[in-house]
């Protein structure tokens, strides 16, 4: 079952309101990517530790709320308690703890770490001789970190054709250190790179399943705050912000408005 992206976004908004926390625009840019990845991965929500599973690492840990909502929709756990996101007593921190949340393979938060861990996991699977696949999702802002590029170099050098890098090109760094041509850069680093509309699940699925030589990179062109005009137009104001009740109603209305 593939979750409905609009319903997931509405859930993210409601939780951001209820909990008082959330990086909503960065969550909105990866909703379709998460749907596509979990659509192609071998995994079993009833058995998060199933030995036959593929692995997903959310390197841009700030988007944990989107990941929680998707895992909940897929049936990893009862999604209700995610509403306590970031509050006392919850297992759902604003950055995920793998020891607390079923389906989370790696605790991330500080940027530029998850991709290196995913590289180590993919190399381990090569050594162990399995056909397991490893997926990691990095942000463009995260890619200001040099360790992202270190890991890409190592992954390419080791020939990790079981590793897929999803790059969220939501241009979050428009006001700071921009990476205007990520597909060219990843290709120059040796990845088998394809660019795709990051809000098109079918296109993403195709990009994730087409044959690739070596490390597969999928550069997903996305919109920070995708689906809500207010968030799209004010992504810096909304980088880390919880909507009040009135704003929540307005954002839900924008979300459900027919596309123009």
């Amino acid at each position: 079952m593939t979750p409905n992206p609009t319903a997931l976004r509405a859930e993210i908004l409601r939780i951001a309101h209820d909990s008082g926390h959330g990086h909503v625009p960065t969550c909105f840019s990866i909703v379709e990517m998460l749907c596509a990845v979990y659509g192609v991965m071998r995994h079993d929500p009833a058995r998060p530790e199933w030995d036959g599973r593929d692995l997903f690492v959310l390197s841009k840990g700030h988007a944990s709320l989107a990941h929680y909502v998707v895992l909940g929709a897929l049936g990893y756990y009862d999604p209700g308690p995610v509403a306590r996101f970031g509050n006392r007593g919850t297992m759902f921190g604003c950055h995920a703890d793998r020891l607390k949340v079923p389906g989370v393979e790696v605790s991330t938060g500080s940027l530029g770490h998850g991709i290196g861990l995913a590289t180590g996991m993919a190399l381990a699977e090569k050594i162990l001789g399995t056909d397991r696949r490893v997926y990691t999702l990095v942000g463009d802002g995260e890619s200001n970190e040099g360790t992202v590029w270190e890991a890409v170099m190592v992954a390419v050098d080791r020939g990790l054709d079981n590793l897929t890098l999803l790059y969220d090109d939501n241009r979050s760094q428009g006001r700071a250190l921009q990476i205007p041509n990520p597909a060219e850069r990843l290709a120059a680093f040796g990845c088998d790179t394809v660019g795709v509309d990051g809000h098109d699940v079918a296109a993403l699925t195709q990009a994730l399943t087409r044959p690739a030589r070596g490390v597969r990179a999928v550069v997903a062109r996305t919109v920070k705050g995708k689906g809500c005009r207010t968030l799209e137009d004010n992504m810096y104001e909304w980088h880390r912000k919880s909507p009040d009740a009135e704003t929540l109603a307005k954002l839900l209305e924008e979300l459900h408005a027919p596309a123009v």
Partner: peptide
């Protein structure tokens, strides 16, 4: 693996995870 110590550690952790 080259002169990239932070990634050496991340890769080490990823291998240990598996």
């Amino acid at each position: 693996m080259g002169i990239c110590e932070p990634t050496l550690i991340s890769v080490t952790a990823g291998m240990s995870a598996r």
